[in-house]
């Protein structure tokens, strides 16, 4: 294969992303490439980003976690229910994260110890977590005075970066959280033995096992981390909408998988890497933001986004065959 071919294959998605950005910049000269809008996009994608980063951890091993969306809903509901009974923000948040850990542990046990295919196991827990969220909340949205201002205020605040056009410019707290998760997942996957072994498992599970990698334990731990990440994203969502509803995280799962796949097109070996996942998340977020500003019909926007995902993965796959 030619050098050029290899480069387009590896960087085709990144190039596509740049074209998308230039396209919006050209069409929305006054409003797209502004500090405020970019910070805005970073906040809008923060919840999806946290789910996608956590999803990357299991996808490194060629596994999936379909339950992340319903875990996000459940975590939001657990925190909101505790708030409505007068718990502190700390207690509500801790309990929700504990639920995430526990849910992830259940997924890990089912996949790794019991040996159920991740698709089937997490499809089952998806339904269980979703049912549980409906059950404990009675199907109702928890909002209003039940949600403490300290919790909902978190998503509306940020680090002051200065003022622009006489309005304060903030680095949103939700963006900060996503950046911290990005750093932690990057550190874990790329710079720890644990992370490298997950990649080894993804490469060849049986060979890893024979080489002395404790495949079962590591897979289990990876699912625990993904569950924790999903719960964190659910809390971020609940804080942003100042309410919790038993279905509100449902849309995160497919978008997160799409983001990881978009990122995988950027890797020589087709492996997921968390920085590439970030590009995938940003592509989805920028498309949403730009197409909305250009007043593209919501349903056309959805079709375009699906089409772009398929096109990116298809071009990368064709590139690999040639």
């Amino acid at each position: 294969m030619t050098r050029l071919g290899r480069l387009t294959r590896r960087f085709g998605t990144l190039l596509g992303f740049l074209i998308v950005i230039l396209f919006f910049w050209f069409n929305l000269p006054d409003t797209f490439m502004t500090a405020r809008n970019l910070l805005n996009i970073s906040q809008q994608v923060s919840m999806l980003a946290v789910v996608a980063f956590s999803m990357t951890i299991v996808m490194v091993m060629n596994d999936f976690d379909l339950s992340v969306g319903s875990m996000a809903s459940l975590a939001g509901i657990v925190a909101a229910l505790l708030f409505s009974q007068g718990s502190s923000v700390f207690l509500g948040v801790s309990a929700a994260l504990a639920v995430g850990l526990l849910g992830g542990l259940i997924n890990g046990v089912l996949v790794s110890l019991v040996g159920i295919l991740p698709f089937v196991a997490t499809l089952g827990t998806l339904t269980i977590f979703s049912g549980l969220a409906f059950f404990v909340s009675g199907g109702k949205t928890i909002f209003g005075r039940d949600i403490p201002a300290a919790f909902s205020g978190f998503a509306r605040a940020g680090l002051p970066l200065g003022t622009l056009n006489e309005r304060p410019l903030l680095l949103p707290n939700l963006t900060l959280v996503a950046l911290i998760v990005l750093f932690l997942v990057w550190l874990t996957l790329e710079h720890t033995t644990f992370g490298r072994r997950l990649y080894a498992i993804g490469g060849n599970r049986e060979a890893s096992r024979l080489a002395g990698v404790r495949v079962r334990l590591l897979r289990l731990l990876a699912f625990v981390l993904t569950g924790l990440g999903a719960a964190l994203a659910g809390l971020m969502y609940a804080s942003r909408v100042a309410s919790a509803n038993p279905t509100q995280g449902a849309g995160l799962m497919l978008d997160a998988i799409a983001a990881v796949f978009l990122g995988m097109t950027m890797s020589e070996e087709g492996e997921p890497h968390v920085l590439a996942t970030l590009v995938g998340v940003l592509i989805l977020g920028v498309l949403d933001n730009g197409l909305t500003q250009m007043q593209v019909d919501s349903y056309v926007r959805e079709m375009l986004m699906g089409g772009i995902i398929v096109a990116a993965v298809a071009s990368s796959s064709l590139g690999k065959q040639s």
């Binding site: 409003t31 805005n40 909408v241 949403d288 933001n289 909305t292 500003q293 349903y299």
Partner: peptide, 26 residues
């Protein structure tokens, strides 16, 4: 007038995001 109808298909957080987008759009 020009009307831009945005449906977020049940996603309430996306309503916030889309409001922010149209605010940016002006």
């Amino acid at each position: 007038w020009t009307v831009n109808v945005i449906d977020t298909a049940g996603d309430v957080a996306a309503v916030i995001s889309r409001i922010e987008d149209v605010v940016t759009q002006g």
